[in-house]
Nucleic acid binder design. Sequence first.
DNA 1: CTGAAAGCGCTAACAG
DNA 2: CTGTTAGCGCTTTCAG
Lengths: 336, 336
Amino acid sequence: MATISDVARAAGVSPATVSRVFNGGRVTAERAERVRKAAADLGFSPNRVARSLRTQRASVIGLLVPDVENPFFASLARGVEDAARRTGLSVVLCNTDDDVEKERGYLGIALAEQMAGVIVAAASRTHTDLSALVARGMPVVAVDRRPRAAEVDAVTVDNQHGGEDATVHLLERGYRRIACITGPAGASTSEDRLAGYRAAMRDAGTPDEQTRACTRHGDFRAEGGHTAMRELLALPTPPDAVFVADSLMTVGALQALREAGIEPPGFGVLSFGDLPWASLVRPPLTTVELPSYDLGSSAAELLRDRLAGSGKPLQTVVLRTVLQARESTAGPVPSG
Amino acid sequence: MATISDVARAAGVSPATVSRVFNGGRVTAERAERVRKAAADLGFSPNRVARSLRTQRASVIGLLVPDVENPFFASLARGVEDAARRTGLSVVLCNTDDDVEKERGYLGIALAEQMAGVIVAAASRTHTDLSALVARGMPVVAVDRRPRAAEVDAVTVDNQHGGEDATVHLLERGYRRIACITGPAGASTSEDRLAGYRAAMRDAGTPDEQTRACTRHGDFRAEGGHTAMRELLALPTPPDAVFVADSLMTVGALQALREAGIEPPGFGVLSFGDLPWASLVRPPLTTVELPSYDLGSSAAELLRDRLAGSGKPLQTVVLRTVLQARESTAGPVPSG
DNA sequence: CTGAAAGCGCTAACAG
DNA sequence: CTGTTAGCGCTTTCAG
């Protein structure tokens, strides 16, 4: 691997000049040309590790998500990666599985690796600790979920509004005993979507104890949705519709319904977050669409601004959801 | 950020000793303890960038995939990440969009960033050029797709066997005029799956011209599957089943069938590659499951061995597919 | 077993 | 505009 000195020697200039050519310093056109030619001949490209050590900042950012197999986070990751690429940044992918310990490990690596910054969908609203990074001056952007006490920029979705929208839609379509399968108790997204659901139910005059009895916490995976749905169906007075706060959990819930011989829209099903194959599921699913890709790209842009030294006060960008009504919530009595 | 010298000073030893403590060199227990305590007090963790520069090898590997939003690659990425984590490696995620230029850019970054190694699902069998990395001694593992001329380790799927399995299954279920929609003519995955289909048909005594008449090439997208299926249905003697060599194309094919008022399993449908929601499609789809996660973890382990200096000759690991029989291939006569 | 010293490749003052 | 110089933080001979 050719170094900057090799190029300097070949071009008959000093290493500093070579560096300047590659970093936009003032160099006469003629010399610059000679350097570029020498570099090309030697197949030289600047060693980023050495540069990082010298400048004390890297061109790598960390992205911590619970699980990239979740289509929502895959799309978010894609948004981050595309935006980062435009800025010349590389993205290190870290799956935390919503495990605070695992997350802590990755945050430590981000520090040790001197990453330029970190975008994190926090594993826990209360236990995720970003203070070490903030204290060291490393820019952090919270995405999707915002850890409670963190002094960081954030890009989130209006989950409460989305949950309320979803529930109101189900009510309007005539469902009465509407259940909710939300995510882990710690996560802010779970809580907010649940809060939206609760608010809408309360507005509709549903007694709080019924609402509570019809609420389950899952794990943002198909498995959790399946278990939760089975529990709900086993209730003395089972629900007639369900608002599932995550697309993967919806898959599990649908499976449980099918096993029980129950079909939408007789039983209403509304998913928070797109199913990639929504059009193939029968009947087509009503969903609350999340701007997952934009969430990622916005976060990366916010981080980029911070890296560029934007002195703005901390900001939180909130993106809106869009309700996509389809047949799975057509109404409690099968139309026909 | 505390440095190794800070710790050395605090512990009253030399930087070299601190380094030894953190890298398993021989140090007396008493001194080691003092160093560890000082390190803990200062919140010290070794600067990986400096270490990389010094040792000339990083603890970061690159992962190049076409698109992490494709569930197959998301799962593969997860497999890589999990295995890398166990080895103390971090993964940089790169989406190439099957664009050779983009891929080239990322390979250059891998070089400049002095990454420890690279795992790549090549954008092109013929145009992907891994030689620069190989020449510089950077370990490379090809995954899923193997660029033709590359001297690298590889982990692939036994596509031919999978295609044969699929076709035999359809034959056993009583379908007779089995069609095949495979991918682009250039891709090795397309060709291999098609070869498996042909072999099975030949073994079953089907005349070659029928097999050929019932074969179509698509583009690995829903659109291509849709077009191909329509053509097949328009044949003088249309098929009674189809083996679709890609999950997205299956989506298109199913849509075409639905438009024609045809339903599985009267018309058999078998998809190569999981649809994440396979069990939700009505009727549930029979699929040839690809070991996407294992593909990733195996690749990462192979890379780990290379990094550890395994002097073995280059190897190619071939993983088997698993046929998951469901209702969409229950048999040519609608049961019931 | 331990410390001193010499860089890994690059950039950022500082003179010239 | 250009070259010289001095490290960034760490590991690794080489003496002791």
